[in-house]
């Protein structure tokens, strides 16, 4: 793949993938490793995408798989206490919010992130995470209850 293309793809999707991996893994170092693995698979697959949205959804799906598998093997490494979580520098006003988010179970964190941060609909999240739409709705409901998110629009389309 051309060198410029690699730079372009990392600049376009690097932070997006990094954020979702941090949210799932709660660790900056692991998130960097996961992001690099996503891009390695991207380069190896030489996949053709029908649109930028298709490309983004594919990358998020791969990131989800990699993070879930890394979490499986987390037992090889010390458990990360929520207070010792290291996700790099954060502005003070963001820390408390992130702390609350990170206390959710990983399956719920992923759905909350994709819906509220990336703006994906239920059906789209269902395809990315490879779970049923009903499961996505339940996790969103759980996440909202636990974060006590006040929404301007409660529609779940």
């Amino acid at each position: 793949m051309e060198s410029e293309k690699i730079t372009e793809i990392v600049h376009t999707y690097g932070n997006l993938l990094y954020r979702v991996c941090v949210v799932m893994l709660r660790n900056a170092q692991d998130a960097e490793d996961a992001v690099q693995e996503v891009f390695c698979r991207y380069l190896e697959k030489h996949k053709t995408f029908s649109s930028p949205e298709h490309e983004k959804a594919w990358l998020l799906t791969v990131a989800n798989h990699i993070c879930k598998d890394m979490l499986r093997f987390r037992s090889r490494h010390p458990q990360i206490d929520i207070d010792d979580m290291d996700i790099g520098y954060l502005p003070a006003e963001s820390s408390a919010v992130i702390q609350e988010l990170m206390q959710l179970p990983v399956a719920i964190r992923a759905v909350i992130y994709l819906h509220y941060i990336e703006g994906y609909k239920i059906r789209e999240i269902s395809k990315i995470l490879k779970v049923s739409e009903q499961a996505v709705k339940k996790r969103l409901q759980r996440g909202r209850e636990q974060l006590r998110i006040r929404l301007e629009d409660q529609a779940m389309s």
Partner: peptide
């Protein structure tokens, strides 16, 4: 929530 997560780079 959006602002907080967006600050992770």
């Amino acid at each position: 929530l959006i602002n907080a997560v967006s600050s992770i780079v």
